[in-house]
Design a binder for these strands. Structure first.
Lengths: 230, 230
DNA sequence: TTACTATTGTCACAAACTGAGACAATAAGA
DNA sequence: TCTTATTGTCTCAGTTTGTGACAATAGTAA
């Protein structure tokens, strides 16, 4: 990452949501030899679109290409500025700031995005600076650097606000899913239980679902239909 | 604006909404000797919070201090980069880029905000680079530089989406207003007519208004109550 | 003083929507 | 064949919303 390759002072952070075992989860990086946890983020190349930079970073970490991505806020408080954190990350990777990395110790304004992906499609991959990239339930996050906890909270709040308006919950599931699975996603996002009949009626009335064949799970009860988003 | 005073590559643009004569209007700058029209914007000082920079810029142009302000999107496409526009603006003001203004010809990522203000509270003031700062109805804007037309459209869309959820329409009116005036604001923002009785019932049920004395306009009919937001 | 007009606050009724439960129809195991 | 758990659908009541009606003004005109 030499100085000339990226726009200085500008970063992005991404809150990558997945759904598994009944929990809403997000991808968190743990940096090599530091015990520091952070959202996966990155920088923008000099001639690159901001949105493309985020998609590139997500692709590098998840291998996915068609990602549901939404920009939700830009964090620009001066109090975000804490060069010691970045210095620690660089040193843990054997990098001296003087070797062309001084710009990473500057103040950054960060554009935050959230992504919704199908948990099963991802094998998280660490990037060059990181030790591990793992899923954590949103209610059991480790302590995060800088204002990243705040970014996560705002991401969840925005996702909740957009849930009914944009009907995006399906992006957290495989192509085909049952009505019960979809309801579980909604409940995990909203943090509340929903009524089965009311939920089903609302989803069907919205006319965004296509009904497919039944799914036989081997359980001793009526088999549910599979659905997909139109 | 010497190089050292501001963060490079980062700008903000503000869409300042006002309401007058039945129209939703926004503040547009016309730059001196160029015929170029643009949203009022600015830069962030090295140790300044992003949000504070925007409030500072709005204060310089409107004299207002308590401004309803909302960040809505950050525009970061590389296609925004057009140094000729900025070069024209500088030259029209007799400034040579070589005099420490080269950074203004670089690529910028712009964080966009919208503000809602009471039209009557404002006497728009031009800033150092500008010739005039005037209100334009949103449906009769001049051609704007770069992607500013796109920014305006996204601002209006966001305002519409937030209107019911945040009940912010009152920020475009004086402290006290009639129900009919509030309805006119909503209609101007949404671009549609609303039913008088339904609108009044919804507003009263929301329990966000305080009812004050009646307002006698001199017209030959029942006088309406004045309201203010709680 | 007495009509007359335009607008306002409120009510009434129907239509649409939502919460909550009931129930028959399975799918598999006992 | 009986039992159990879950699903798709229906019903009914309560709430909200669309729509019009109507009396109560505040001025103007006769």
């Amino acid at each position: 990452m030499p100085q000339t390759a990226y726009l200085p002072h500008i970063a992005y952070d991404s809150v990558v949501f997945g759904f598994s075992e009944g929990d809403l989860k997000i991808l968190i990086m743990e940096y090599h030899n530091t015990g520091l946890f952070a959202l996966p983020g990155g920088f923008v190349r000099l001639q690159e679109n901001l949105n493309d930079a985020v998609l590139r970073g997500l692709n590098e970490r998840t291998g996915l290409t068609n990602i549901y991505l939404e920009q939700f806020y830009t964090f620009g408080d001066f109090s975000r500025f804490d060069p010691e954190v970045m210095r620690t990350l660089l040193e843990a990777n054997g990098i001296l700031p003087a070797d062309g990395y001084e710009w990473m110790l500057d103040r950054f304004i960060s554009v935050a995005y959230y992504a919704l992906i199908n948990y099963e499609d991802v094998r998280p991959r660490p990037d060059a600076l990181s030790d591990s990239c793992e899923w954590y339930p949103v209610n059991e996050l480790p302590e995060l650097i800088l204002d990243h906890q705040h970014i996560v909270e705002k991401a969840i709040q925005t996702l909740r606000d957009n849930l009914d308006r944009k009907l995006v919950g399906g992006n957290l599931l495989p192509k085909k899913f049952t009505m019960n699975e979809l309801q579980n996603v909604y409940e995990a996002i909203l943090g509340t239980k929903l009524r089965r009949t009311t939920f089903q009626r609302k989803m069907l009335a919205a006319e965004v679902l296509t009904r497919h064949e039944k799914h036989f799970s081997g359980k001793a009860h009526m088999a549910p239909y599979l659905y997909s988003f139109k």
